[in-house]
Nucleic acid binder design. Structure first.
Lengths: 241, 241
DNA sequence: CGGAGTGATTTA
DNA sequence: TAAATCACTCCG
């Protein structure tokens, strides 16, 4: 997030906190947190910090990453919370997060999936391509730190989990849908993440990339003998339209 | 038990297995099992191993902890059959499934989520509404039995899981996208499920329902004091557009 | 920034 | 509840 040393109210006066994002490698996007004593000494971990401060400061519930005191650290409790009292700012935040999430699956997910089959069918080793592409398909972690306050993370997790991991049976209302115009739900506002504020040019670029990926994919499928299956599907299309 | 890499006869030649005892902390005494590919890459779980090996090795009855094939594992899981090669019909099927999945998240997911907040803001108890709506948001179970043959289930699960549960870091290509016209990916063919073959009338109906749901949601948000937050978002919109 | 070691969370 | 999986810390 920042390369700047910030005051840290949870520590004695004069202590600073710094967060540095990793730029490359397997852990690109992750960050390292450092603290600086009033004299400028750098600390890279909580144990190191605790050794230095000794018993002058109680770090039992100090969260090294956020720099805040987290009373929950003392409790081993799991948070299966379904509280009735979430605030309206959370309503707003979650709405944004969900919209962003759908948006993410739709854009990056589909794009990467097309890319995957394209490469796969061109003869690249399956396992390599799989590893590579699957890495790009997750829900970005960075999103979780964007909200108005930290406690929103629990709700976001709960929603994202329920969306994909529930084991309840299928229900009725999935039987109708509006495939032909899904865009109607996605035009109200920008996503929260700065990285996802896009210009019209970005959009044109991405459209082009995806069109090309899809075209390549379809050509590859055809060339590999799926013409018959495609033919069948077209028949169905015809009858429905 | 050991800190030494042992040959693992249940895997292809060159694969090694290692067991490491945890020495300290709350989990001291427990052990972790790792595998190493012939090239030296380390694997820390069976899912990770399966993603890498793909369809080249059948891990259905492979026990990660012992490193041996356990035929009894087959009995417990009713559908763990898997072919050595996946046929082109499977490629086709998976492509369809994935398209359907995006489609599903986009339509039913967003719709139900709107419905959820609408109800929530009208005063229904949160926990009840949550339970009810989350049930409707999952990936329908019925879909899994639609494919050309049962062994496709494994692949479908792998893809669905990877999309949401991967642990790799976020990468660069998520920074551009095409929010304004997501429909470009969703017009090639009909989904596989009979329940999802829709008529134009179905679509008009669903569009209407969703429009109404969104309208209700937005009105409720405004009425509850989120006008300021919405205002902020519009400002951002304006600058980007 | 990597990755072994261990905590935290999820699954069965 | 333990076992399995995943995530993160911390130090090189």
């Amino acid at each position: 997030m920042e390369r700047k040393r910030m005051d840290c109210p949870a520590l004695p006066p004069g202590w600073k906190k710094e967060e540095v994002i990793r730029k490359s490698g397997l852990s690109a996007g992750k960050s390292d947190v450092y603290y600086y004593s009033p004299t400028g000494k750098k600390f890279r971990s909580k144990p190191q910090l605790a050794r230095y401060l000794g018993n002058t400061v109680d770090l039992a519930c100090f969260d090294f990453r956020t720099g805040k005191m987290m009373p929950s650290k003392l409790q081993k409790n799991k948070q299966r919370l379904r509280n009735d009292n979430f605030s309206l700012s959370k309503v707003w935040y979650i709405t944004e997060v969900f919209r962003y999430y759908v948006f993410y699956v739709l854009t990056n997910g589909v794009f990467c999936f097309s890319l995957f089959w394209e490469k796969r069918l061109k003869g690249l080793r399956s396992s390599d391509v799989t590893e590579e592409v699957l890495k790009t398909m997750e829900l970005p972690k960075g999103l979780q730190s964007v909200g108005p306050d930290m406690s929103d993370e629990t709700l976001l997790s709960a929603i994202a989990s329920a969306l994909h991991m529930s084991s309840a049976p299928i229900t009725g209302q999935t039987s109708t849908a509006a495939e032909k115009n899904p865009a109607i739900w996605l035009n109200t506002s920008q996503p929260l993440c700065k990285a996802f504020i896009v210009t019209d040019e970005d959009i044109r670029e991405q459209e082009l990339k995806v069109h090309q990926a899809r075209r390549s994919l379809e050509e590859a499928l055809m060339a590999d003998g799926l013409a018959r299956a495609a033919e069948t599907t077209r028949d169905i299309d015809g009858k429905v339209a």
